[in-house]
């Protein structure tokens, strides 16, 4: 099985897997995120167009919200 790592969790890799697909698979619905693929920042506008390849290390940093 080809895989990627998302926040240290193993996730099955899929063809044409972009950031939005990863967020869906992980059920990451929070809106204030910082996404990095192999250490490189991905801006929100680029979530759809950024394709992730097998063995990528994806960090989805959830910021803090609320009082």
């Amino acid at each position: 099985m080809k895989k990627i790592t998302v926040n240290d969790n193993i996730l099955k890799w899929e063809e044409n897997m972009n950031i939005n697909v990863i967020l869906q698979r992980m059920n990451y619905t929070f809106r204030m995120l910082v996404v990095k693929v192999d250490g490189k920042l991905v801006k929100k506008n680029d979530y759809n167009s950024t394709i992730v390849y097998p063995d990528s290390d994806v960090k989805v940093i959830h910021l803090i919200s609320g009082g």
Binding site: N7, D8, Y28, F30, V60, I61, H62, I64, G67
Partner: peptide, 15 residues
């Protein structure tokens, strides 16, 4: 929770 809210940082981000 007004002192610290660390759940995402700890549980989700694993930072």
């Amino acid at each position: 929770h007004d002192e610290a809210w660390l759940i995402f940082m700890d549980m989700v981000n694993k930072q």
